[in-house]
Every structure is written in structure tokens, then in C-alpha cells.
Design a protein around this nucleic acid. Structure first.
Lengths: 210, 210
DNA sequence: CCTTTTGAACTGACTGGTCAGTGCAAAACC
DNA sequence: GGTTTTGCACTGACCAGTCAGTTCAAAAGG
């Protein structure tokens, strides 16, 4: 017996493929309608599986959502960290690293706009079942930015008067909102274009005549 | 909304008072749970009125929500515009005006955190009944920031290379996310403190050694 | 008296979750 | 090799509960 299942990690198991389909179906539906307005029947239908399959793969609707959150933010965090490290090797400049992370953030949002939207919509809610999951996962992502900021201060490349936590939040917000507006209202613009505008803002070349 | 009254347009009619109570009840519940997860019974109960009263005052749950959105963003827009105009009279500097608007934004979020949260959660959704309302109302608010940016470019106080629309989005995002994180994770910090950190970011005193 | 509110009962549609049963490919057996 | 068994993955009808919205007679309120 011992037939199918995924040994080490992401194999091509039938199970894993089904879960992936369910993630993809759930992410767009929940982004559009919100968690509560999205029914399990809809998710199953869009994924092309039966409702029972959803409950075979996930303990409940909430659990499906929580695992989806973890999955998505995991991708983002890895991408940010990779961008920061790659830049660190090449240039050593922390401002360059921040800039690279901004780009990585934009690339992520460009690829997974629905996930981003859903994440933003749920992040500041209180009293929800998955709130603790959300907090943990948020901290993981923000911490990557904070680390770079802190390193920048230590390298005397950034002012030591900055508030690391708040500045990290503000930078994340800047990218998040600009990117969501981009995808929502001007999807034809290029990523480079958007990146350039945000770079300018980051490097303080907005106020102060050039 | 959240706390006090400030009806904005009406005297102390009994009807208006009831609507106000319903707004206040709805805004916190929907911010916490989302629109779909919030029941009309809950809203009525928290407002201290009978369910029939909700339907006497609003055609439906959605209409209540839409009018709530209009009401809230109206307050924000007025506040932003007022801050910009007041600063314009006093100093004439557009950067000062932006700074004043940042503060006005923070004050608003400080006073109505639930409304802000609910607004963010709904803003980028698609295919929802109130989407057009939301777009209109968003544009009203962003336009205030854009106007100041444009004036700043014309006065040669800001670089003419900036992208007005995107920069406005980014600034709004910066304030929004920083403020929501502030209220959610460090509510004990003072508004001045947060404002100072954001001012620094606005004026590009982060990168570049002082 | 005319407007507003009450409060409880009712409906009809919808939803999360369940469960007995099916299909099928690898494993065990002869 | 051919047959039988095993159990994973999946199915979809079904159930018990929930909710938006309606109705209405009666009570405040002003």
C-alpha cells in the first residue's frame, strides 16, 4: 500500500496538486469577495473538485485560509530576503538593498495581486480566528526590512534618528498602496516605471530641488 | 462615527441621531469582522435599537454600508483639504502643506481607526456592489494630495520628475500603513512621535547622512 | 396626528460541515 | 502473469443551522 503521498516536500503528488488548485481558487475568490462572502462550494467549483475534497484536504474553511496565508507570505519573505542578500553581495550599499527589496515587493505584487489584496484586507482585523497566524507572518516579512534598515544605520549610511519599526512600516505601506493602485487603476504601466517613482521617493529626491 | 458625533450636516433630529448610532455600531463591527460576517441583528443590538429601525432608516445592509463609506471619507477629505489650505495661508510652502496633511491623516486615523481599517479592507476589492461608490470617494481624497503635489512642482519646490499620481498613492500608503500599525501594535506611542518619523521620511532625511 | 421606533414572528434562501460510498493504482498473493 | 486486496483521494447528496429582509400591530414621541 503506502502508495502516493509526498515524501520530502513538494512532489508531484496528486494531493499536493489538489491543494495547489484550491489555493489558487481560494485566493482570487477571497480577494474579490472577502473571506465570509466566499463559500466553500464556490472554491471547490472553481478548483474543479468536489466540496468533500476541500474538507479532505483541509480541516475547515478557516484552516484552508490560514495555510494559504502562510504559503503566500512565505513566498514574499523568501523573495525579499533573497533580494536583500543578493544586493548585499554585489554592492554592499544598504540603500541599494532597500531599493532591491522595493523592486522585489513590486514583482511579488505584480505576480500575486490577489494574494496581496487579500492580505491587506485582513491584516488589521481583530478578533478573528487567524489573527495570531497573521501577526507571526507579518512580523517575519517586516523583520526583513527592519534588519536592512538597522544595518544601514550601523553602517552610518542611514540617519541614526530614524525609527526602524515605523520606517519599515511606512516603506512597506508605500510599496503596498502604490502597487495596489497601480494594478487596480493603471495596470498598463510598466514595473520599471513604478519602481523608478518609488526609488525617487525613497532617496528623498522629491522635495529639495535636484 | 467611532466616538463623538460631529454629524457634519444635520441638527439634532431624532432620525439623524439614530442613523449616527447605527453608523457607529456598524463601523466597529464591520472593521472587526468584515461586511459579510457582520449581521444586521448585531448592528441593531450594538446601536441599541430594534432591527426594524435599521430597515426604517436604510433600505438595506449594503445601503447602510455605502452611506457609511461616503460619510466617513467625506470627513477625511474635508480634514485634509482644511489642513492644506490652512498651511498654504500660513507658510506657502507646499512641503509644509504635505506635512500638515500627513498630520491631518494621522489625526483622522487616530480618531477613527475602525473606519480606516474597514476602508482599507474594501478599497481594492472588485465586483462588489459598492465598488463605484468607493472609487469616487477614493479619488476625492487622493485628489487633495495630488493637487498639493502639482502645486509644489509648479512652484519649483518639488522635482518636476515626480509622478504625481503614483507619489500621492505612495504617500497615502505610507501614512495609512504606518498609522494602522501604530494603532494595532504600539497604541501607546504619541501622535507627535509618529508624525516626526513620517516627516523625516517625507523630507528625505533618511538616506543621505545628515 | 403624524413621524419614528419597537419587537417579535416568519420566510425562504443559503452555508459550513458530514458521511456513506466510488474509483483506481500500487501491493500482495498464488 | 493474473487475480485479489488495500487504502488513499475524491465525490456529492444531505443536514442542521443561520441570516437578510418582511410584516405589522402597537407604543412612544414631539
Amino acid at each position: 500500500m503506502e502508495s502516493s503521498n509526498a515524501p520530502g516536500g513538494a512532489g508531484g503528488g496528486r494531493r499536493e496538486a489538489t491543494r495547489q488548485k484550491l489555493y489558487e481558487a481560494a485566493v482570487t475568490l477571497i480577494a474579490e469577495q472577502g473571506f465570509s462572502a466566499t463559500t466553500v462550494d464556490e472554491i471547490a467549483e472553481r478548483a474543479g473538485v468536489a466540496k468533500g475534497t476541500v474538507y479532505y484536504n483541509f480541516a475547515s474553511k478557516s484552516v484552508l485560509f490560514e495555510e494559504l496565508l502562510r504559503h503566500g507570505v512565505g513566498l514574499l519573505t523568501a523573495s525579499l530576503r533573497e533580494a536583500a542578500e543578493r544586493t548585499a553581495e554585489e554592492s554592499g550599499s544598504k540603500v541599494d538593498a532597500l531599493d532591491a527589496m522595493i523592486r522585489a515587493g513590486l514583482v511579488f505584487i505584480d505576480r500575486y495581486p490577489s494574494f496581496t489584496q487579500l492580505y491587506v484586507a485582513e491584516l488589521w482585523r481583530t478578533n478573528r480566528a487567524w489573527q495570531s497566524t497573521l501577526m507571526v507572518v507579518r512580523q517575519e516579512a517586516v523583520a526583513v526590512v527592519e534588519d536592512v534598515l538597522r544595518a544601514g544605520v550601523e553602517a552610518d549610511e542611514l540617519s541614526d534618528e530614524i525609527d526602524v519599526g515605523l520606517t519599515a512600516s511606512a516603506l512597506v505601506g508605500m510599496v503596498l498602496v502604490a502597487a495596489l493602485d497601480w494594478k487596480a487603476f493603471q495596470p498598463e504601466r510598466s514595473l520599471d516605471d513604478v519602481h523608478a517613482a518609488l526609488s525617487r521617493l525613497l532617496q528623498g529626491r522629491v522635495s529639495g530641488h535636484r
